[in-house]
Design a protein around this nucleic acid. Sequence first.
DNA 1: ATGCCGGGTACGACCCGA
Length: 259
Amino acid sequence: MRIATWNVAGIRAHIGALLEWLRQEKPDIVVLQETKTVDETFPRLELEALGYNVEVHGQKGWNGVAILSLVPFDEVHRGLPGDDADEQARLIEGVFSLEGGVVRVCGIYLPNGNPVDSEKFPYKLAWMERLHSFVEQRLSFEEPFILLGDFNLIPAPIDAHNPDGWWGDALFRPESLERFRSLLNLGLVDALRAVSLEPNYTFWDFQAGAWRRNAGIRIDHLLLSPQAADRLENVTVHKDVRGWDKPSDHVPVEGQFTF
DNA sequence: ATGCCGGGTACGACCCGA
């Protein structure tokens, strides 16, 4: 079973690259972020033509998440609980039945939080605290649970080409990292860190020649419950996709599991 | 210190991203 995350930076703008990657790799389940469109204009038919079941949680202009799956959905949940006034589409979860049992896959687009002196930063922190409660509840099921997506968090200095340049940014500052560690401390495993102690970047800015200079950061993560971590075989960062024509600024990150 | 680039909205110029 291969389960991937990809921030597509606008699904209508990058549908060609998405379809090409899916045709090449045929992952079983993919969570998408920054689809940037309402459900009515989501390119569902092209994805269904490749055999994917499609569930979306869209929003006009920005945000927006989705799950593509070759396995039928048992359940779908949209939105992060804990604030009825929050209208930003940043979380979608699917539950799937496999031969070996159930697997729960939750895709997130965690708020960026910049600039830190705006209301966006406290929104990020509050969103992380709601996520903490949500994950705590999910872990109580004691089943394979995969929380993956664009976390907008640089876990450690090794996860940035220029960590000093990022320090203080909403992606890499104490208040953000404290909450990220607290989330991990619930009992989640950072899958890529578990299989590799090398620098692995998943995002290169469109600006300032970041890709050419390999000035990347690792902000797209797969976090695993113990029951999922036991089944982890490997993680692949599809770095080559960043060099395609008209790419997203993020690349797909894929976990391989024995279920 | 800010913009760089790029998508979306809407069709000029701004919001948003990381």
